[in-house]
Amino acid sequence: MSGAAFKRRRSMTHAMIHGALVATCLVCIVPLWLIISASFTDEQALVERGFRLIPAKFSTEAYRFLLADPAQILRAYSVSVLVTFSGAMVSLFLMSMLAYALSRRDFSLRKVLALFVFFPILFNAGTLPFYILMVRQLGLKDNLLALVLPPLVLPFFVLLLRTFFSNIPRELIEAAKLDGASEWLIYFRVVVPLSTPALATVGLFSLLFYWNDLYLSLLFINDKSLYNLQYLLYQIIANIQLLEEGFAGQGLKPPLQSVRMAMAVLAMGPVLFAFMFVQRYFIKGITLGGLKGD
């Protein structure tokens, strides 16, 4: 095969790859654009003419409605940010240590503990016993800890991390051990730096889990000052529906459809940013390549 032909084939392949990815991305991005566009569309136009790539009639009414009480929404944002960041950080720390221990083939309790971690994925006690534990035994009603603590260790993420970690060459760990490094040192100095993409991925997932969580607020939060963003938006929508169903009337017609879309944008925005931020840790090959020089 001549070099030129090889190159041509190469660039053909690349064009095809980009073609496929661009097509897939379009399928993903068009709805996003429709949502953003709909959130800026006048309610009446939205109902009459449906979703358009460019708002049929531009309006910021939905956002004005949602942001009518800025203090309230700011507080909800800060609750969400606080819970999400503290939760995700502690969570990543706990889960990665646990997963690392489970990934070590020479760890005697490996199988038993793996089963221990796996079991709750399938079997759970249900809402009521969980509620009794949280409220009556731990007294966590209307307490932000109720939002932070339960998802600290999510079995699926632990098992994912374990699988990532088990790809780390055993020789590296053995070598470090021979050099007299303690298990802790090995974990922090060898395993963590080697696993940035994995930790970034699971950290991101954990972040998303905290950010999107509505269930725990539904169960344990009644105090309005402790509402997180998802819960506040959920309540706003529920109340609009109620208004629409004609209790309080008073000539008020909240833009239900566009508010729903604006809500999606408000809830999505910050995590999209977080996602792009975390992405810088998805860096190809840097890990092992970098280590080789040591």
Partner: peptide, 30 residues
């Protein structure tokens, strides 16, 4: 000697899991 440090590493996570998943689990009898 071999497992101690690993057990300690696993412990905090196991405790969280135990508290929030296993303590209420007998409720499965419902």
């Amino acid at each position: 000697n071999r497992n101690g440090a690993l057990v300690l590493m696993a412990l905090p996570g196991m405790l969280v899991l135990f508290t929030f998943s296993y303590v209420p689990m007998p409720g499965i009898v419902l």
